[in-house]
């Protein structure tokens, strides 16, 4: 997608969401059509389970409908708004599943399931040249931290434990990595 096309479709999605906030169901359908694949792709990437992902996408769009009036175009794109909702719900599920698995462990011992590296799988799944190109601009350590956080649903403290590095190091890797992605993807400041 060229930046021009993205800009124009982003405006359409935002316009549609603003109209949907006033009760316009047709506009909400337009908003769904413009953003559903991005939401579903994100949720599926995190949960890796089609049935659960479908459930989450449904929850997310109903939440988007109910709370459309809270969308503030000045704070970002309509797509980022709804993808963020989807991502958060997806990782909430991952963390809840981990927590319940942990409760099943011996009392007091928090044994999280070992994180299975998804980097290779991510590499294979990423169809978007733009994103693939952006990710290759990261150092392996930045890439690993971002994979663990965004796709794996690990918190920065968990990542520090997983990798046995200081928390400050994880923050720095996430920050430098995301700033690099921002530059490559051309998200304006």
């Amino acid at each position: 997608m060229t930046p021009e096309v993205r800009d124009s479709s982003a405006r359409d999605a935002a316009d549609a969401l603003v109209a949907a906030a006033r009760g316009d169901q047709g506009a909400f359908a337009t908003f769904y059509d413009a953003t559903a694949a991005a939401v579903h792709g994100t949720v599926l990437r995190v949960l890796r389970d089609p049935a659960q992902s479908e459930e989450v996408v449904q929850e997310v769009f109903l939440e988007a409908w109910r709370t459309a009036a809270r969308f503030d175009p000045a704070r970002g794109s309509a797509q980022a708004w709804v993808v963020t909702m989807g991502h958060r719900r997806a990782i909430d599920r991952v963390r809840a599943a981990e927590a319940s698995a942990a409760r099943d462990e011996k009392m007091g011992v928090r044994e999280l399931p070992p994180y299975d590296s998804v980097s290779e799988e991510v590499q294979g799944m990423l169809e978007t040249d733009e994103v693939r190109h952006a990710l290759t601009s990261l150092s392996p350590l930045q890439r690993e931290a971002i994979d663990l956080a965004y796709y794996g649903g690990r918190t920065h403290r968990q990542i520090a434990d997983d990798l046995d590095v200081p928390l400050g190091t994880v923050k720095t890797r996430l920050r430098d990595g995301l700033l690099k992605l921002r530059a490559v993807l051309g998200v304006p400041s």
Binding site: A38, G41, R45, G76, S77, Q79, T84, H87, T128, Y150
Partner: peptide, 10 residues
Amino acid sequence: EVASRLAPPV
């Protein structure tokens, strides 16, 4: 905004 673009659309 950057983070929201990190997964391929499906």
